[in-house]
Amino acid sequence: MSEGYMEKALLKLAKQLNAYDEASLTELWNKYEAEVANFEPTRKWEEAAVVFGMIQAVRLKNQLFNYHWAQTAGPESMSPRPDFIPGKGEEELFGSKPKGSGGGSAGSSKGNKVIRLQPRKDS
């Protein structure tokens, strides 16, 4: 596959995925998290892992968007949304630590961090 074709295909997938609301995708989070946690060396497991990754990507994109939007809206809106709780390892990405956090980091090498996203407590 040429890089141009692959990039077009990925951008098409991104546009389609971005058209769904996070709440609808979050409903599927538990299902795919369970499928990925139960490893099987099958094509079905691989596809479930990709779906799970895409759901995670949309959630991260929304969190980043909300964080940066709050920064541009002024000092009164600088605190994160009440339902925005950075997951373990995300505190450095968003420049703050969650309340009650021990302050650990998910990754130790500079520039390479694995960010663990978890479902919201209210979902």
Rank of each mutant, 00 (worst) to 15 (best):
S2N: 14
E3W: 15
G4I: 13
M6E: 11
M6G: 07
K8D: 11
L10G: 01
K12A: 13
K12S: 13
L17N: 05
N18F: 08
A19W: 05
A19Q: 13
A19S: 15
A19M: 09
Y20F: 15
Y20Q: 14
S24T: 14
S24Q: 08
L25Q: 00
N30D: 10
K31W: 02
E35P: 00
A37H: 05
A37G: 08
P41H: 14
T42R: 09
R43W: 07
R43P: 03
W45F: 01
G53A: 10
M54L: 15
M54Y: 08
I55Y: 00
Q56R: 05
A57P: 00
V58L: 08
R59E: 03
R59F: 05
F65A: 14
Y67T: 08
W69Q: 12
W69I: 07
A70P: 02
Q71V: 07
T72G: 05
T72Y: 11
P75W: 10
P75C: 06
E76L: 12
S77V: 07
P80F: 06
R81H: 14
D83E: 15
I85L: 11
I85C: 02
P86F: 03
K88C: 03
G89I: 02
S96M: 15
P98T: 09
G100F: 12
S101A: 13
G103P: 01
S108C: 04
K110I: 06
V114A: 06
I115S: 02
I115T: 04
L117T: 01
R120I: 09
K121T: 10
S123K: 02
